[in-house]
């Protein structure tokens, strides 16, 4: 190999498109030539712009004071103001919607992830009768066109006296988050060596003790992703919340937001400001978990 280091290999030369006369240093695997690099950066920058633009756009529109400003975006620059935010924060029920949504999503996240984790663990480690059907039903549950379940769900919630209550909404959200989280966490638990459980048993821990003290702490990336997914699902949900929450003091954000358009005029500027305010907590949470995202998701996805 040492004899070849001073001249570029033919393939490397072909890839770099740099004159072969220049003695190219040997590149490690996964490194590419300057042209290829520029192209890659170009593609990534373009994609990032496309990903960023709609989010930046709504931020920008939310600074325009009039409800038709989104049609003449150029004019917003001259009259940038935070008046929309002031109106939303102080002249509407935003804070109470925010509190409701936060309560519902927070409890859904904690409750949903806990029961999903215990199910995922049971399915990952224990072979019990009904193991296969359970995995299947978790998958099939995700196939439900959930919009269609609203009518029967409504009847059942009203029979249980859970209509127009936080608990009812939390339970309904759990049915949408738990199946996926259970799958995800099952996959993550599968990657944790069984020997750890066995060591726990030898030291006299009960199955629950093993799960709680040994496995859960190791599964933190998976749990973080599951929590993020649950929170986001509950935080931004519209259909259930608008059907099941009847009194205006229990509205969550997604329902409250609609009150801006239900009038004869649509107050797009206020909606934009509200939308931005709504996006803040979930984005913060997102960037807290994002370093776990790749490992947490894939462990769940790579085991089918």
């Amino acid at each position: 190999m040492s004899t070849t280091t001073d001249r570029p290999t033919p393939r490397a030369a072909a890839r770099t498109a740099v004159p072969a006369a220049r003695p190219a240093k040997v590149r490690g695997r996964g490194e590419s030539g300057p042209l290829a690099k520029t192209l890659m950066h170009g593609a990534l920058i373009l994609a990032s712009l496309v990903a960023l633009f709609p989010v930046a756009w709504i931020l920008y529109v939310s600074l325009g004071p009039d409800k038709t400003d989104y049609l003449h975006p150029g004019e917003i620059l001259d009259k940038i103001t935070f008046s929309n935010y002031r109106t939303v924060l102080f002249d509407t029920d935003f804070m109470s919607w925010f509190g409701n949504a936060f309560l519902v999503s927070g409890v859904t996240t904690v409750f949903g992830v806990m029961i999903a984790a215990s199910t995922g663990y049971a399915v990952s480690r224990m072979r019990f009768p009904g193991h296969k059907p359970l995995m299947w039903s978790l998958l099939v549950t995700q196939m439900f066109p959930i919009a269609v379940l609203i009518v029967p769900m409504y009847t059942i919630l009203s029979r249980l006296g859970l209509l127009d209550s936080y608990l009812g909404l939390i339970l309904v959200y759990s049915t949408t988050t738990v199946p996926y989280c259970g799958w995800l966490l099952k996959g993550y638990f599968d990657t944790i060596p069984v020997e750890i459980d066995e060591a726990g048993r030898v030291d006299g821990l009960s199955p629950f003790g093993t799960f709680w003290r040994l496995v859960l702490p190791l599964a933190r990336p998976g749990l973080a992703v599951a929590a993020f997914y649950s929170f986001l699902t509950a935080w931004a949900e519209v259909a259930f919340a608008s059907t099941f929450m009847l009194s205006s003091d229990k509205y969550t954000l997604a329902v409250g937001l609609q009150t801006f358009v239900s009038e004869h005029d649509a107050q797009w500027n206020l909606m934009a400001a509200t939308a931005v305010l709504i996006a803040i907590p979930s984005s913060v949470l997102f960037y807290l978990v994002q370093r776990h995202l790749v490992t947490g998701l894939t462990a769940g996805a790579s085991k089918s």
Partner: peptide, 17 residues
């Protein structure tokens, strides 16, 4: 981080945008 943004922001906010 930038590319994940469409996922990090709630759907109804981005669809509204």
């Amino acid at each position: 981080m930038l590319l994940i943004l469409p996922w990090a922001v709630p759907t109804f906010v981005t669809v509204f945008s």
